[in-house]
Lab assay of single mutants.
Amino acid sequence: MLDDRARMEAAKKEKVEQILAEFQLQEEDLKKVMRRMQKEMDRGLRLETHEEASVKMLPTYVRSTPEGSEVGDFLSLDLGGTNFRVMLVKVGEGEEGQWSVKTKHQMYSIPEDAMTGTAEMLFDYISECISDFLDKHQMKHKKLPLGFTFSFPVRHEDIDKGILLNWTKGFKASGAEGNNVVGLLRDAIKRRGDFEMDVVAMVNDTVATMISCYYEDHQCEVGMIVGTGCNACYMEEMQNVELVEGDEGRMCVNTEWGAFGDSGELDEFLLEYDRLVDESSANPGQQLYEKLIGGKYMGELVRLVLLRLVDENLLFHGEASEQLRTRGAFETRFVSQVESDTGDRKQIYNILSTLGLRPSTTDCDIVRRACESVSTRAAHMCSAGLAGVINRMRESRSEDVMRITVGVDGSVYKLHPSFKERFHASVRRLTPSCEITFIESEEGSGRGAALVSAVACKKACMLGQ
């Protein structure tokens, strides 16, 4: 009897593995994704193909990295998701002549009506938060230079001027797309009239992360975010950046690689679950690469896999709870928690219980395998993109072996128990001629924006502006 049951459990697990095998990517698959990513990057950089390229390769006008001589107080704003952060950054000489960066910050959550109302409502709310922060720190009387981390696709015309191309991540505030974001912020500050600010720089969160990590390690020339969304930036040779005049030196390019796949480059790798996630998203047909990796989508992918296993009578005796059938019910943090389970399955059992399920031991094991399959594919897909960037940098610099540091931020990278190990191992397999160091950014977005502002202020002083 026991043997029969054991055989049935083994057969069930084997069927589960057959279904989950769809998520496995072979090294040849990853090399294919990497080569296609490089081709799209090239198209994004070139003037004649930029418009139709899915990977936009947006110039950021960040050319210099901090040298350690900029000092002063800077205000930093960070808008990239449902939370908005205001930070005071003091850049100065530390002990023994070292450079020191001290920060104080406060988080504000953005109400739904500000995210989806008008641009005026959104930026009025942001300036209200700045006003509140300055009151708390008794700094209303000071006109501070301000660095703005704005983590949406922007076409820069200068370091302090950028046109919002399109909202992502659930934002829909009308009247912002096609307009200068810094102008919208300046107008809102003017409307309030109770404080003055000098907006000197606007950067993407990947750029802010790279600059913040450069402060720790001067070989950091790539910034990457794996959180709600997924994106990367890197220092490109100016001669390859056709959208900006000049051939000397390097400029940081914001790849906006989340949109890779929007022209069909990933079609052969998309599964039924991916198509369902895409169809029910706020932007169907867009940001397809990001939807395979980002935390906004990972939990939902797992939920759809679990429903398939229920329908195949391989999980929960073929019956799903009402909660499990509800879109968004299986949160991405559950994926991390399930994979963090120590082996007694308590954590998995508790999560499934909150979803109205009474799982068996085998159910718990199957749910864990589903989570591992989805998150491992995410790590491997992400590795193909980064390997594409790094191999490109090595080739354009004609280096036999390139040493490089990548600064990384984002909740999936930082909080998932195995993502970074799987990701690092896969990147290294795909970049055999590179020695890569990964560092995690601390308060990256805010500190990085302030350091970019410090560079901009120093330049302005040198130019006598």
Results as ranks from 00 to 15, higher is better:
residue 187 D to K: 00
residue 412 V to L: 13
residue 267 D to K: 06
residue 56 K to G: 11
residue 44 G to D: 01
residue 64 S to H: 14
residue 310 V to Q: 14
residue 34 M to T: 02
residue 211 I to V: 04
residue 145 P to Q: 01
residue 323 Q to C: 10
residue 106 Q to R: 03
residue 121 M to K: 12
residue 212 S to T: 02
residue 201 A to V: 00
residue 422 R to A: 15
residue 141 H to T: 03
residue 216 E to P: 01
residue 286 Q to A: 14
residue 308 R to Y: 05
residue 89 V to N: 03
residue 410 G to Q: 08
residue 308 R to D: 05
residue 60 T to H: 01
residue 154 V to I: 12
residue 45 L to E: 02
residue 383 S to N: 00
residue 75 L to A: 00
residue 361 T to E: 09
residue 327 R to I: 12
residue 203 V to R: 00
residue 272 E to Q: 03
residue 412 V to G: 08
residue 165 L to N: 09
residue 78 D to W: 06
residue 200 V to W: 01
residue 139 M to N: 03
residue 424 H to L: 06
residue 144 L to M: 12
residue 308 R to Q: 11
residue 137 H to V: 09
residue 448 G to H: 11
residue 173 A to I: 03
residue 415 L to R: 12
residue 181 V to K: 11
residue 180 N to W: 15
residue 241 V to Q: 02
residue 109 S to Q: 10
residue 98 Q to H: 08
residue 430 L to F: 07
residue 34 M to A: 03
residue 42 D to M: 04
residue 312 E to I: 12
residue 67 E to R: 09
residue 420 K to M: 11
residue 436 I to W: 09
residue 437 T to G: 06
residue 233 C to V: 01
residue 106 Q to C: 09
residue 457 C to M: 12
residue 118 T to C: 15
residue 389 V to S: 02
residue 173 A to Q: 03
residue 462 M to H: 11
residue 44 G to V: 00
residue 237 E to W: 02
residue 102 K to G: 12
residue 402 M to P: 10
residue 279 E to L: 15
residue 392 R to Y: 08
residue 66 P to H: 01
residue 141 H to L: 05
residue 175 G to T: 04
residue 91 V to W: 05
residue 184 L to R: 06
residue 191 R to L: 13
residue 77 L to F: 07
residue 292 L to I: 15
residue 207 V to E: 05
residue 314 L to N: 08
residue 304 L to R: 06
residue 435 E to L: 12
residue 116 T to D: 14
residue 96 E to Y: 15
residue 116 T to G: 11
residue 26 Q to M: 15
residue 48 E to R: 09
residue 148 F to N: 02
residue 188 A to W: 03
residue 247 D to S: 07
residue 439 I to K: 04
residue 292 L to N: 12
residue 351 I to N: 04
residue 368 R to C: 04
residue 108 Y to H: 07
residue 291 K to L: 12
residue 203 V to M: 01
residue 106 Q to K: 04
residue 106 Q to E: 14
residue 386 L to C: 09
residue 50 H to Q: 10
residue 91 V to K: 02
residue 70 E to M: 08
residue 377 R to T: 00
residue 15 K to A: 14
residue 387 A to H: 02
residue 226 V to E: 02
residue 246 G to A: 04
residue 228 T to V: 06
residue 121 M to H: 15
residue 358 R to E: 06
residue 209 T to Y: 01
residue 223 G to L: 01
residue 351 I to H: 02
residue 125 Y to A: 09
residue 202 M to Q: 04
residue 319 E to K: 11
residue 46 R to I: 12
residue 145 P to G: 02
residue 391 N to C: 10
residue 332 T to V: 11
residue 14 E to W: 15
residue 219 Q to Y: 06
residue 407 G to C: 08
residue 100 S to P: 07
residue 360 S to H: 01
residue 40 E to S: 09
residue 446 G to D: 11
residue 239 Q to M: 10
residue 200 V to C: 04
residue 192 R to C: 02
residue 196 E to G: 05
residue 42 D to S: 09
residue 328 G to T: 15
residue 290 E to P: 08
residue 347 Q to R: 04
residue 273 Y to F: 12
residue 96 E to C: 13
residue 129 C to V: 07
residue 246 G to L: 02
residue 239 Q to A: 01
residue 444 G to V: 07
residue 269 F to G: 02
residue 197 M to N: 03
residue 79 L to P: 03
residue 109 S to A: 09
residue 341 D to C: 02
residue 345 R to D: 13
residue 228 T to H: 11
residue 53 A to W: 06
residue 388 G to E: 04
residue 274 D to S: 03
residue 460 A to H: 02
residue 270 L to N: 04
residue 230 C to Y: 07
residue 69 S to K: 03
residue 107 M to D: 07
residue 169 K to F: 15
residue 349 Y to G: 02
residue 10 A to T: 11
residue 399 E to F: 12
residue 109 S to R: 09
residue 193 G to L: 06
residue 46 R to M: 13
residue 190 K to Y: 15
residue 311 D to R: 09
residue 77 L to D: 00
residue 226 V to Q: 05
residue 119 A to Y: 04
residue 187 D to E: 09
residue 143 K to C: 07
residue 158 D to Y: 14
residue 179 N to Q: 14
residue 105 H to V: 11
residue 371 C to W: 03
residue 407 G to A: 11
residue 205 D to A: 14
residue 230 C to A: 14
residue 314 L to V: 09
residue 320 A to W: 14
residue 322 E to I: 12
residue 362 T to V: 05
residue 163 I to N: 07
residue 85 R to M: 11
residue 225 I to S: 02
residue 430 L to V: 06
residue 392 R to F: 10
residue 21 A to Y: 11
residue 356 G to S: 03
residue 328 G to D: 11
residue 342 T to M: 03
residue 128 E to I: 11
residue 257 W to E: 00
residue 227 G to A: 07
residue 56 K to R: 10
residue 294 G to N: 05
residue 369 R to T: 06
residue 88 L to M: 05
residue 171 F to M: 12
residue 328 G to A: 14
residue 116 T to W: 09
residue 118 T to N: 06
residue 112 E to T: 07
residue 309 L to C: 03
residue 306 L to E: 00
residue 185 L to E: 01
residue 405 T to G: 03
residue 288 L to E: 15
residue 79 L to D: 05
residue 232 A to G: 02
residue 285 G to Q: 05
residue 458 K to M: 13
residue 167 W to L: 14
residue 321 S to Q: 11
residue 196 E to N: 01
residue 395 E to L: 11
residue 171 F to G: 10
residue 169 K to G: 13
residue 314 L to T: 06
residue 310 V to E: 03
residue 156 H to W: 15
residue 202 M to I: 09
residue 239 Q to V: 10
residue 68 G to A: 06
residue 43 R to S: 11
residue 126 I to R: 01
residue 313 N to E: 09
residue 11 A to E: 07
residue 7 R to Q: 08
residue 219 Q to N: 15
residue 313 N to P: 01
residue 199 V to G: 04
residue 286 Q to C: 13
residue 138 Q to R: 12
residue 330 F to D: 01
residue 382 C to M: 07
residue 94 G to C: 06
residue 270 L to V: 10
residue 229 G to E: 09
residue 385 G to T: 05
residue 151 S to Q: 06
residue 451 L to A: 12
residue 171 F to H: 15
residue 357 L to F: 05
residue 197 M to C: 06
residue 119 A to L: 12
residue 130 I to G: 01
residue 407 G to Y: 01
residue 328 G to K: 11
residue 255 T to H: 04
residue 242 E to W: 02
residue 289 Y to V: 15
residue 449 A to Q: 09
